[in-house]
Each structure stands twice: as structure tokens, then as C-alpha cells.
Design a protein around this nucleic acid. Structure first.
Lengths: 258, 258
DNA sequence: TTGCCTCAAGGTGCATACACTTTGGCACGA
DNA sequence: TCGTGCCAAAGTGTATGCACCTTGAGGCAA
């Protein structure tokens, strides 16, 4: 068995493939590697070999380096002089902090959205997210992919709100909070149905507060929404880590959140 | 007179000089350009010419591009494919949002610091900042550089608190909030003495709340501290913009905060 | 066996050359 | 005068070569 190698080299079996729709190769590489990082496909603390990555993507080292520099600036990678880029690791404590921060920033987003009002498209997107959620949760035999489908709806709801706040700074802050692998898209994984229903109800309440232009109420509701999300996730995480009780030192990383 | 040129090229008279203490040239360039950006030495919306910058710093384009990629990742520059890097502009609205965000995140920092406690060095640093502030504000003929000196003290206080919170995520978020030129170091510029005294009193209260391990109180105090700072700054800004009432469309940029 | 030194292989940092894109000016025609 | 198309200059995107640093294996001595 391979025990935890403190520094292992990444990409044993090509988890990153080129995204072709971007204008330049550097941007293609940036998107591809960022997606791989956020999906947790590259193990934390592993070094990234530039030549290897360049070969596997069929480009030279130049766009590779450009992409890695950008991602290091975004905080997804760490750069060590003369040693290259390593995949940044996130501790459990940091994940908890990220939820606290996310509660505050998404709360601020709601406040600003309530102050500034919704555009027609934003209102439509939110109502659609609410409607789709209603429909999904009303299905009598709960579909097996219910959680992943609700995850998409959840993203749509929060995204519309974020656009309504119309603040690039807040978008950047939220990206920082969500850059921790697996915590964004798979939020809903591991929750039971009542949990999802409760959160969907929260969405309804938040939407109404924003629609009625009640900034304080919207902010408070959203904060509570995220904090309860954190609590649920921490509970699930505790269960998961209790299930695999070997190597308790692994708490420093969060790969098990998969 | 040069009216506002929507796209002008930067560095008419070399505002950026190489920082030599870093290990690699790319890091030297990164630090230099970042400092120039945060000091507002490069006009917003101006394009950065790579060859020109390379010549003026006596390096090739490679480390220049590496630095610019990093800074773009940090959000200080924008990158447009095949057109290069542009100095990011911050609107007045965004500056206001940044203060709201800063209030929340520095509040969270205080809460975490109060929960986790101060190390010996952090406690020392904060007490020193408080003591130095007391001394400075007690001088009977107020020294002319009072504000800039208090600015340094202010930074020391907030930095110690940030280290006590011990969260890289929060440090990153704060960097986002403080990346707007001139709002970090020159916070105190333009305030009158009573304002500074009031803020110094706030520091005392915050320190005590953290010392007594009262997270909620510490958070609330810090939030109010930053929000009042925003109010003061906005008042000063309004006065400044009223003083130079020509070209009111200039509100989109914040160069006058100098 | 243990510790240290050497050295070669691997990998990153930087400079440079060239291809491709953008841009602004100029000529031409309406 | 104005719009249009072309073209050259300027500037960015990418590949590549080489210098330097890091790293780990092997030899040597204690």
C-alpha cells in the first residue's frame, strides 16, 4: 500500500484534458487545470511537473507556465522558487472558516441585491430555480439523482443573486470561499431529503425578502442558511471520518468529502 | 489639456523600479509592479506594454509576463486575449462594497482571534500598537506627520489581529478588500484629530474584548469600527470631489483618494 | 551502519526567435 | 466628407534552447 507520500508528483493517469473553446492555449490550460483542481482530481501537496503536463496536453511549457502563474495568483496553487508549483492543501479548520466567510459574504450579497433590486432576467432565473426545486421535490418516488439535480438548481439560485448584487469584489471573495475542492458543486451530496427540503424553503424565504426589498431580513436569512449548511456538512464529515477511522491524522486534508 | 483618454499606455515616466531582495526575477517584478499598482502609480484602464516594461526593468519579457499573469490572478490586472494586460479600474460603488466586506471579514477575524486566543508575540504587538498610539496622540503640539505615523500603528494593530485569527483564507479575502489603491496605507489621510482619537479608543475596546475571549463583542466592535471608517472616508471623499467639481464623470475612478 | 560528499539527472528560470493578432494610417471610391 | 479596405508597424502568444538550482543515488570514510 502506498502510505501518504508527503510530496508525490501529480497526474499519474492524466486527470486533466484540454478545454478547446478558449481563445488562447494559455487560457485553455488555465481552465482545464482549474477544473481539475476544483474537482479534486489532483492530490493536495503534490508537485506539478511542467514538462509532463506540457506533453500530456500537447503544448509547450510556455502556456503551461502562464496558466500555473494565474492559478497561483488565485490561490489554487502554491509557488516555491526553483521548485515549481504544488497543489494547495486545505485544512479542516480552513474549510470551516470558509463557510463562516461564505455566510457573511453571501449575506452581504443578499443585502445588496435587496437594496439594488432584481433585473428581469435575474428575477426570472430565481423564480425558475424555485419552480424547478418545487417540482423536483414533489416527485413521489424520489429520483436517484435528486441530489445532483438539486445541486444545479442551487447553483442557479445563488448565481442569480450574485449577479443581482453586481459586485465583482464579492464575486472574487466568493470564488475564494468556493475554491476548496468539492465543497461547491457537491454541497448537497450526503444530505438527506428533509435537509434539502428545508434548504429549499430557505430559498423561498430569501427570494421573498429580496423581492420585498428588505435588505436586513435578506442578509440575516442567507447567513442562517449558510451556517446551517455548514453544520450539516460538518455532521456528515464527522460521520464519514468516523467510518474510516484509520489514519486520523488525515484530518488535515479533506479529500474524503468526495 | 489631456482629456480622459479611454485607453492610454502606462508608465510615461517609469513609476516602477525593481525590488532586488526576491529570489527570482519574476518575483522581483511581481513585487515591484504590485507595489506600483497599490500605490496608484499606474493609471487605471491603461494598458501595460510588455516590451517597454521589460526594457525599463532590464529583464526579458518572460519574467514580466510571469509577474503580470500572477497579478491578473490576484485581480489587480485584467487580461484581454491578444491585447495584453490592463490596469484594473475600481468604481466608487466597488470601493463602498469593499468597506462593507472588510467590516465583515475583519469582524470575523476578531471573532476567531477571540475564540483562539492571542500568542505572546501577538499580544505584545497589539499592546505596543496601543501604547505607541497613546503616546503619539498625547503629544501636545500635534506633529505634522501625525496621520502617517498613526497609519503605521494602525497597520500593526490590524496585522497582529489577522495573525491571531490564523486563517490564510481570511488573509486572502482582506487582500482583496485592500487591493484598491490608496485605501489601505492612507486610511488615515484626510481625517481630523478627533476622528483618529475615536478610532484609537475603538482599538482599545477591541483589544480588551479579544483578551477577555468575548468573540461576539469583538466581532461587533470591529464591524462598527470599519463601518464608521467607511463613513468618514466617504465624507472626506464627498468634500474632495465637491472641491474639484470639474468633470463629475470622474466619479467612476478613485484617484482623488491620494 | 551511519553520515557526508560528489555528481549526474531531472526540472525550473530566463532569454530569444518567430508566428499571429491587433491597430492605426493611408489610399481609394462613393 | 465619409465609409471601406489594405497594409505595415507594433505588440502579444508560443516554442525552444540553455543556464542554474534542486534532488536523490551512490561512493567513501569514520
Amino acid at each position: 500500500m502506498t502510505s501518504k507520500a508527503a510530496v508525490q508528483t501529480a497526474s499519474s493517469e492524466e486527470p486533466v484534458s484540454l478545454a478547446l473553446h478558449a481563445r488562447t492555449r494559455a487560457l485553455q490550460v488555465t481552465e482545464s487545470v482549474r477544473a481539475a483542481l476544483l474537482d479534486g482530481k489532483l492530490p493536495a501537496d503534490s508537485r506539478i511537473n511542467e514538462v509532463q503536463l506540457a506533453r500530456s496536453l500537447s503544448v509547450s511549457r510556455t502556456p503551461i507556465r502562464a496558466a500555473l502563474q494565474t492559478l497561483a495568483g488565485e490561490g489554487l496553487l502554491d509557488h516555491q522558487p526553483n521548485r515549481g508549483f504544488v497543489v494547495r492543501a486545505f485544512s479542516m479548520g480552513e474549510i470551516g472558516d470558509a463557510f463562516e466567510m461564505r455566510a457573511l459574504s453571501e449575506g452581504l450579497i443578499c443585502r445588496l441585491a435587496a437594496e439594488r433590486g432584481l433585473s428581469a432576467e435575474q428575477d426570472l432565473a430565481m423564480r425558475e430555480a424555485l419552480y424547478l426545486g418545487d417540482e423536483l421535490l414533489a416527485l413521489s418516488p424520489t429520483p436517484p439523482d435528486c441530489r445532483s439535480r438539486y445541486s444545479a438548481i442551487n447553483v442557479q439560485f445563488h448565481l442569480a443573486l450574485q449577479q443581482a448584487a453586481d459586485s465583482r469584489l464579492l464575486a472574487d471573495v466568493l470564488r475564494l470561499c468556493n475554491r476548496i475542492p468539492q465543497t461547491l458543486t457537491h454541497n448537497v451530496v450526503g444530505f438527506d431529503l428533509p435537509d434539502i427540503r428545508r434548504r429549499h424553503e430557505n430559498h423561498h424565504k430569501i427570494y421573498h425578502a429580496v423581492l420585498l426589498r428588505e435588505p436586513k431580513a435578506a442578509e440575516t436569512l442567507m447567513r442562517a442558511h449558510i451556517v446551517s449548511l455548514k453544520a450539516s456538512l460538518m455532521r456528515v464529515a464527522a460521520l464519514a471520518s468516523a467510518a474510516k477511522k484509520d489514519d486520523p491524522a488525515d484530518e488535515t486534508h479533506a479529500q474524503w468529502l468526495l
